[in-house]
Nucleic acid binder design. Structure first.
Lengths: 116, 116
DNA sequence: TATACTTATGAACAGTTGTTCATATGTATA
DNA sequence: TATACATATGAACAACTGTTCATAAGTATA
């Protein structure tokens, strides 16, 4: 935590800026941004919220959130790739569900920030 | 939590889908998506990580993450609007810092998901 | 005030993203 | 096998996003 700032010598151009070793791998940061990107779309957020209540078929999700089957299917693909949802075939239907409790936690954390 | 799926009558098209009352306000979901969108860019993620270590001037951030002053300034604007960073003028410089511990928590949660 | 330094901003452009439409794939049943 | 139902996918298009470039705005000092 560094909430107050010291006047000292920050404007010196010979500042060493050694905080750089705190920075995670470039690769990891890309993955992190990509994960957040997945949460950064209303349709996908709605899908995740719908699945928090119960597992659902694709068409049911579409009906619930008011989107086309195609749009939902495309977005489920993205959510699958990010390992946020999993699925299971049941006859003609494909049932989607949340991957794990991480999704709940992420969404809750985001909500907290917004609502505080 | 609903990790197993019952065969019963999910395929019935008269399913009531009452889970809909679980869904937060449309408006709130937009805000949530917008928040995640802010985390969904590598440059902004790098800026946040840089600021986790210590408060920094704009140009220092730019040097640390290898971006232009302009790009950083533009992105800081976005971060400000999302209330993820705050700033303080010190003479010619503007010192940026993280708004609160929420940022740490969000990033940590994301990292956990990726690395698990 | 003139100059140098630091940050912010607008316009333009390229790259990305999400939706729609059409259609393919997969499954169950008559 | 033919039909109907459910889901997935590719192409095209519009909208959005992040960077760059040029420059404006703010501040300190000679």
């Amino acid at each position: 935590m560094a909430s107050e700032y010291e006047i000292t010598d920050i404007s010196s151009d010979s500042e060493d800026l050694t905080g750089i070793d705190q920075m995670p791998d470039e690769e990891l940061l890309y993955e992190l941004a990509d994960l957040f990107k997945v949460f950064g779309d209303t349709t996908r957020i709605k899908i995740l919220y719908a699945l928090m209540d119960k597992d659902l078929r694709v068409q049911d999700i579409a009906d619930l959130i008011g989107a086309t089957q195609s749009a939902v299917s495309h977005q489920l693909r993205t959510l699958k790739q990010a390992r946020l949802v999993k699925f299971q075939r049941e006859g003609k239907n494909v049932i989607y569900s949340l991957s794990d409790d991480h999704v709940h936690t992420m969404l809750a954390q985001g909500m907290t920030h917004i609502c505080e």
